[in-house]
């Protein structure tokens, strides 16, 4: 889902024009970026939290050539998933007091899918995108 698809889905659900939904969605992400610029964390209950992490300079290596390179100090956003979303992506019912159950079974892609090269589980296959919710 891209930002414009997010805008379309929000517009449809909230019965807004795309233009208004776009301003709202952009305002939200812009405000979050502004907060991170000020080194502020962002806490969205049920979704997750963003914090700004500061990294010291270090001597790294160019992974291709092995040459040592100096890496300047930097700050990067770090996202920690919220409890509700973590449970949902693991196929558990949402909500704190919902009874725990086994995650929904995730089947391996069937024969035709298995014949194409797979990126060894680092990326989700599209075949899996319909088995939850």
């Amino acid at each position: 889902m891209t930002k414009s698809e997010l805008i379309e889905r929000v517009a449809e659900e909230a019965k807004l024009t795309k233009a208004r939904a776009e301003v709202a969605v952009s305002t939200i992400f812009d405000a979050m970026i502004e907060a991170m610029k000020r080194d502020e964390g962002i806490e969205i209950r049920g979704f997750g939290t963003f914090t700004v992490r500061h990294y010291k300079p270090y001597e790294g290596r160019n992974p291709r050539t092995g040459d040592p390179v100096k890496v300047a100090p930097k700050r990067l956003p770090y996202f920690k998933i919220g409890k509700e979303l973590r449970e949902r992506i693991n196929g558990l019912p949402a909500g704190d007091d919902a009874p725990a159950r086994e995650p929904a079974p995730r089947e391996a892609p069937s024969a035709p899918a298995a014949s194409r090269p797979r990126p060894s589980g680092r990326h989700r296959e599209e075949d899996l995108s319909e088995d939850v919710i």
Binding site: T2, V10, I44, V132
Partner: peptide, 30 residues
């Protein structure tokens, strides 16, 4: 509306969909 934006994102991620917000970043279920 703010709730709707985050719940739309949560629903997408719950089905394994990747989210790409240009200028912000990408969310991916691994």
């Amino acid at each position: 509306l703010v709730d709707l934006v985050f719940s739309t994102m949560k629903n997408a991620l719950a089905t394994g969909e990747r989210i790409k917000i240009s200028g912000f970043g990408n969310f991916e279920v691994r």
